[in-house]
Amino acid sequence: MIKDITIGQYFPGNSVLHRMDPRVKILLTGVFIVMLFAAKGIEGLAVGILFTVTAFLFSKIPLKMMGKSLKPIIPIVIFTAVLNLFFIRTGKVLWEWKIIKLTQEGIDTSLFMVIRIICLICGSSLLTYTTSPIDLTDAIERLMSPLKKIKVPVHELAMMMTIALRFIPTLIEETDKIMSAQKARGADMETGSLMQKAKAMIPILIPLFVASFRHAEELALAMECRCYHGGEGRTRMKQLKMSILDLWGSLFCGVFLAGVIVIDRVLG
């Protein structure tokens, strides 16, 4: 069961989206969000939907994976829909019962909101589906590098993120092993009251804690042996490079953003 936890949600592949520069992808995700919020009417939103669908098709991610990323936000979607449905009281009344009033405008707005949220999640999860966590931290480091001027430890933050990502699978494996070992000694983690269950975690948490310190110490030593001294003057094995693909991607995104704004003005 513990093995089912996926780290990030990277889905390996070689699509156009996979090959784009992660920095550009992060920036374009920002543009995409602006695009969705720039849309005021259903027509503008339609352009946004079209963009999401096209990007999705380009990414070659299976539809099932998309469904998976939508699952956790279902409560938010329902909440938004209900809120808009019953609290917008203007417009043509369709149905009324005591204080509950359903209006045309309410239905329109709640549909609009729901579609917008779904697009938002689908579109932005494409970023994490097509970019490995390591690439992502790399790109964040590069994008934030101007902040070094105001003494933000950008490299250190990125290194911390990379190390954390690197050790999640290791610690999961370790937890699995410790759990098996304690179960072999008769530890009972499934039955009992909440308090008993919490107590049953001690034989797992302490060895895990000790293990993390051990890993940290070993890693620090290994880094020091390789003369690691922070980000100053450090070069990379994998250089981030922009290609013609990124230009096309940006153009594509820009055209759609313009499309949303224009269509909203003309039809709105």
Partner: peptide, 20 residues
């Protein structure tokens, strides 16, 4: 299963990492 685990004791590799 639990009684069985008392009957069949298993010592894992590097068991010292399970001390707590």
């Amino acid at each position: 299963l639990r009684p069985i685990r008392f009957k069949v004791g298993l010592v894992f590799q590097y068991p010292e990492y399970q001390l707590f």
